[in-house]
């Protein structure tokens, strides 16, 4: 029973955050422009349409104004906006001539394939490096690993991505210049050939050094903790003691990984842009470059919603892996 009410309370908290986010979006996307005397409907029309006849343009503006209620008072618009978001009515992309939801659904798989395998690799790698470093604390190998992680943390992701792309795709031609044309979902080979390089980069950059350092520092603290000393006093084998230390250090890593997983989709703009992977990131960048507001906001909304769901799942599993957490 305790767990259920905890789950409910957390769900309400996360939903409040979602609501805050929607208010935030509404304010910037619809309210702010109107305060400055701009009809947001104009934003929903691509530049191409400006070339069409004035009547045609005006008729679209009118229909959009009515559809989104821009002629109604702000609070009506607000309710309508929230309602639309909650029902996934994310609008119509006048540039590509299709509903935004469809574009997003088409892009999502590319991003999921791009992000999930590296998340697994990098978590394993972070745990291995971090625990090895902590077990050899103060020795040269610890300094090597720790400082490598710090350096890795500070190399801008787009620099690594650009250099790897130049090296492997342009110079060595072992990866495609752009993945769009290459990927066929029914052909594993095509997926591997397009993704192997972005996978490696994503493994190295996104959240990897943070988790490695987190693992190292947590494990260092745990190796110093009383219960590890006690196990040693009680004559447990060193191997067993290490395993216990690693297992305890994993708890913060798991949470961190969940948070990273939640925000991973927001971090792939650069990789998808460079490698031409037509996922959520490229969709966002293209939308921004084309000033395609419905697409931009729609994809952002989906990303954030996804983040909230993952964070909520993390809320739910956390008490299961760490008995110290009381269900607050």
């Amino acid at each position: 029973m305790g767990f259920l009410s905890y789950a409910m309370r957390r769900a309400v908290e996360r939903f409040i955050l979602l609501l805050g986010l929607m208010i935030f979006l509404w304010f910037f996307v619809e309210a702010l422009p109107q305060l400055f005397g701009i009809n947001p409907a104009e934003w929903y029309i691509p530049f191409g349409m400006l070339g069409k006849s004035q009547e045609f343009y005006q008729s679209i503006i009118r229909s959009l104004t009515i559809e989104f209620g821009f002629n109604k008072p702000l609070y009506v618009q607000f309710i309508k906006y929230i309602y639309n978001l909650l029902t996934f009515n994310l609008g119509y992309d006048w540039m590509q001539h299709e509903p935004v939801v469809e574009e997003i659904m088409r892009a999502l798989p590319y991003t999921v394939v791009l992000t999930v395998p590296p998340l697994i690799f990098q978590t394993i790698l972070a745990i291995l490096l971090g625990s090895y470093s902590a077990l050899n604390r103060g020795k040269w190998i610890d300094h090597l690993i720790s400082n490598y992680l710090i350096i890795q943390y500070n190399i801008p992701g787009f620099f690594i991505a650009a250099i790897f792309w130049v090296l492997f795709a342009v110079a060595l031609k072992t990866a495609p210049l752009s993945a769009v044309a290459v990927i066929k979902w029914n052909n594993i080979g095509s997926i591997l050939s397009a993704y192997w390089l972005p996978w490696i980069i994503q493994t190295l950059i996104f959240g990897f050094p943070n988790r490695g350092i987190l693992m190292r520092n947590t494990m260092e603290d745990i190796l110093d903790s009383d219960f590890i000393k006690y196990e040693r006093l009680a004559g447990l084998r060193e191997q067993l003691i290490r395993n216990h230390a690693i297992r305890n250090s994993l708890i913060p890593i798991i949470t961190r990984t969940a948070i990273d997983l939640a925000f991973i989709l927001g971090g792939i703009y650069i990789l998808e842009y460079i490698f031409g992977i037509p996922g959520m990131g490229l969709l966002g960048v293209t939308a921004a470059l084309q000033l395609n507001i419905p697409l931009l906001v729609g994809s952002f909304y989906v990303l954030t919603l996804y983040a909230l769901v993952i964070l909520y799942i993390n809320d739910l599993i956390y008490p299961l892996i760490d008995p110290r957490i009381k269900l607050r």
């Binding site: 910037f28 702010l32 927001g266 703009y269 931009l296």
Partner: peptide, 21 residues
Amino acid sequence: FVLLIPGLAMLIILMTIFQQI
């Protein structure tokens, strides 16, 4: 709340909107 927002994504959105306002 702010820490919850995917930073780069929000940055891109606000930039795009502000540029038009």
